[in-house]
Write a protein that binds this DNA or RNA. Sequence first.
DNA 1: GTAACCTTACCACGATCGTGTCAAGGTTGT
DNA 2: ACAACCTTGACACGATCGTGGTAAGGTTAC
Lengths: 132, 132
Amino acid sequence: MDALTINEAAETTGWSPRMLRYIERMGLVEPERSRGGYRLYGPGELQRLRTLRELLDRHGLALGEVGFARRMQQNDELRQTVEGWLEAEPARPAHVPVDDWLQWEQDKHERLVAEAARRADTTATTNLTETL
Amino acid sequence: MDALTINEAAETTGWSPRMLRYIERMGLVEPERSRGGYRLYGPGELQRLRTLRELLDRHGLALGEVGFARRMQQNDELRQTVEGWLEAEPARPAHVPVDDWLQWEQDKHERLVAEAARRADTTATTNLTETL
DNA sequence: GTAACCTTACCACGATCGTGTCAAGGTTGT
DNA sequence: ACAACCTTGACACGATCGTGGTAAGGTTAC
């Protein structure tokens, strides 16, 4: 058996067992399970746990933020809606009349949502409701 | 003057004035200022505030999460590091020996960070430290 | 079969988030 | 010039986050 149980994994990764369970609930590192239900951490999971710690430290991130990034990547509609909103920001093109610009933004937003909804019918919705 | 002051903006968007200041501190909606320092919300900002509310409601997001998405989009190294980590997840290719796979992941991670660091020399680093 | 380990489910507790309110002082429009 | 509004900063407070602990019970390895 080249997989570690939760306490052994905690030992070699520096996370507490408690945190390993928490990380799993965020969907960040989800180890296999033994027939009896024990978590079994393989080399891949161990490496992931170590780089996760480095990721957080390097950028001062919180686990919840990485979890959110993951949700964004797995839910197309979510990602596109958020990115669409963010992209509408910076500076409106100087010579377009404001009303036209707003209308254009509005349309873009609706196009994005509609498109995402169409494609996401199965995947995205399921993923979202399941994490709630 | 076709720009609203903070209380007027609050009135028409449904946010409280307090929240408008909070949203500004997250970098999500940053209105112009009058010479005396008053916030001036133009039509663009007002529209943005309304769609922001819809964005949060529709996906059950928190302001901090949208703020984080914004940081990711504006800081290349951050985005690439997070996305790199996430992409390493799903399921390792079944027939590649584990050690090779790990090595490959490790290399990819380092390539990404190095590349991002090179390109981000000015922008990213400044942005990060400034938000801390 | 038993010791050592694991599971889930709770309670706890400081830190941060989201939000309100208040105080002291500056700005604006008439 | 004055009323009405704005600014920043502080204190407050419930809700959630990150983390630990403990209890009641099932699993694993020898």
